[in-house]
Amino acid sequence: MENSGLCRAHTNIALIKYWGKRDENLFLPMNSSLSLTLDAFYTDTKVTLEPTAEADTFYLNGVLQGEKETQKIANFIDLFRHEANNNSRVKVESYNHVPTAAGLASSASAFAALSGACRDAFNLELSTEVLSTFARRGSGSATRSLYGGFVEWNKGIDHDSLSSHAIPIDAADWDVAMLVIAVNTGEKKLSSRVGMKQTVETSAFYPAWVESAEKDLIAIKDAIQAQDFIRVGEITEANGMKMHGTMLGAIPPISYWEPESVKAFQKIQEIRAQGIPCYVTMDAGPNVKVLCQGSNIEKIKKILLKDFKPDQLITSGVGSGIQSLKLSDWTY
């Protein structure tokens, strides 16, 4: 019987953004962040131990990946091999139900699912909190995809203390939803990692961003506890715009916006002016995410259909944390 692990993880969208590392190798962030896990986008990953194999293999959406992509995955899996004291090579099969590298958090669900599958394949007894410190080493935002609802990534002190980990904050089961306006799902020209590093090193606005983000985190957690949707939305939108402002201050300036991103933002402002609470956030990509109430999501979508195509509008409820699946569930 093969020794395998199979896991599903959903993406998350940061409401209080993570933008900037204080340690590039350990993925320790400059500031703590907070996200909402979504059920519309997810990754399923199967990891199979192959003790007699000479090298790892990595299949993404059924396609065998090249040396560069496979080595990145192999380096990450080394963390689990070391923890388990097991040097077995592995076969990784991953199916991404998220457009890759389009600012829709594909790396978050990908490394969260890979983390869970590795934990199961190597038979490691790791709590979800500790597992989040492993997931973080693959993609910072992956640490948050291990939980559902609203999730905080505590920036922590260092790696050895395991203090930089994810914390579930709230189930978000009070009419919270998100609508994604897919402006461009192609791969972005400038990766998040490159854009982040450039911003930290060159933007005069960056120090103020870090200080402001920490204050935003405190404020949004208070608003979540009070289930004050409008306040949560206001803080979300302001924080996202401030992050993009730091990029415009980089040398040379960075912008992930496209003309349709601007149009989407303006349309959401118009809808909000009609009395429907909805708020924009954007990550390192042109696609616009709209934080809204589930009871209003179809109404917002209907208005947006006047300016956007149906396949550009993706609605999502709140996603769950990672799930270990049965091998019989693997139908790819």
Results as ranks from 00 to 15, higher is better:
residue 1 M to A: 12
residue 6 L to R: 05
residue 6 L to W: 03
residue 8 R to F: 06
residue 10 H to I: 01
residue 14 A to P: 03
residue 15 L to V: 13
residue 16 I to V: 15
residue 16 I to N: 02
residue 17 K to M: 04
residue 20 G to I: 11
residue 21 K to L: 07
residue 26 L to T: 11
residue 26 L to N: 11
residue 28 L to M: 07
residue 29 P to A: 13
residue 29 P to S: 12
residue 30 M to H: 13
residue 30 M to I: 08
residue 33 S to M: 02
residue 35 S to G: 08
residue 35 S to N: 12
residue 37 T to A: 14
residue 37 T to I: 01
residue 38 L to A: 12
residue 39 D to R: 13
residue 42 Y to P: 13
residue 43 T to K: 14
residue 44 D to T: 10
residue 56 D to F: 15
residue 57 T to P: 14
residue 60 L to V: 07
residue 61 N to C: 03
residue 61 N to M: 05
residue 63 V to L: 08
residue 69 E to D: 12
residue 75 N to V: 01
residue 76 F to M: 04
residue 77 I to A: 15
residue 78 D to L: 04
residue 79 L to P: 00
residue 80 F to S: 08
residue 84 A to L: 07
residue 91 K to Y: 00
residue 93 E to H: 05
residue 93 E to F: 05
residue 94 S to N: 05
residue 99 P to R: 01
residue 101 A to G: 14
residue 107 S to F: 06
residue 109 S to W: 04
residue 112 A to N: 08
residue 115 S to P: 07
residue 116 G to V: 02
residue 118 C to V: 03
residue 118 C to P: 03
residue 122 F to H: 03
residue 122 F to A: 04
residue 124 L to S: 06
residue 124 L to T: 10
residue 124 L to V: 12
residue 127 S to N: 02
residue 132 S to T: 14
residue 133 T to F: 02
residue 134 F to V: 02
residue 140 G to M: 05
residue 140 G to W: 09
residue 141 S to C: 10
residue 144 R to I: 01
residue 149 G to I: 01
residue 151 V to M: 02
residue 153 W to Q: 11
residue 159 H to S: 13
residue 162 L to E: 05
residue 164 S to M: 02
residue 168 P to S: 13
residue 171 A to C: 09
residue 172 A to V: 02
residue 175 D to Y: 09
residue 175 D to F: 07
residue 175 D to N: 12
residue 176 V to N: 10
residue 179 L to G: 06
residue 182 A to E: 04
residue 187 E to V: 15
residue 188 K to S: 00
residue 190 L to Q: 13
residue 191 S to F: 02
residue 193 R to Y: 09
residue 198 Q to I: 09
residue 199 T to C: 07
residue 201 E to I: 03
residue 203 S to T: 04
residue 204 A to S: 13
residue 205 F to D: 09
residue 205 F to E: 12
residue 207 P to W: 01
residue 208 A to I: 05
residue 208 A to V: 08
residue 208 A to G: 08
residue 208 A to S: 12
residue 210 V to L: 03
residue 211 E to F: 09
residue 212 S to T: 13
residue 213 A to T: 15
residue 214 E to F: 05
residue 218 I to W: 07
residue 219 A to H: 06
residue 223 A to R: 03
residue 226 A to Y: 01
residue 226 A to S: 13
residue 227 Q to M: 10
residue 227 Q to S: 09
residue 231 R to S: 15
residue 232 V to P: 08
residue 232 V to I: 15
residue 234 E to F: 00
residue 236 T to A: 14
residue 242 K to F: 02
residue 243 M to H: 10
residue 245 G to M: 09
residue 247 M to R: 14
residue 248 L to S: 13
residue 252 P to R: 00
residue 253 P to E: 01
residue 254 I to E: 06
residue 255 S to G: 10
residue 257 W to Q: 13
residue 263 K to H: 05
residue 264 A to N: 07
residue 273 A to Q: 11
residue 274 Q to Y: 11
residue 281 T to F: 06
residue 282 M to E: 11
residue 285 G to H: 00
residue 285 G to L: 00
residue 287 N to D: 15
residue 293 Q to P: 09
residue 298 E to S: 10
residue 299 K to N: 12
residue 301 K to W: 15
residue 302 K to Y: 15
residue 303 I to G: 00
residue 304 L to R: 10
residue 304 L to A: 11
residue 305 L to K: 13
residue 308 F to W: 03
residue 310 P to E: 13
residue 314 I to L: 10
residue 315 T to Y: 12
residue 316 S to D: 09
residue 320 S to P: 00
residue 321 G to F: 06
residue 323 Q to F: 01
residue 323 Q to P: 05
residue 325 L to A: 06
residue 327 L to W: 03
residue 328 S to L: 07
residue 331 T to M: 06
residue 331 T to H: 12
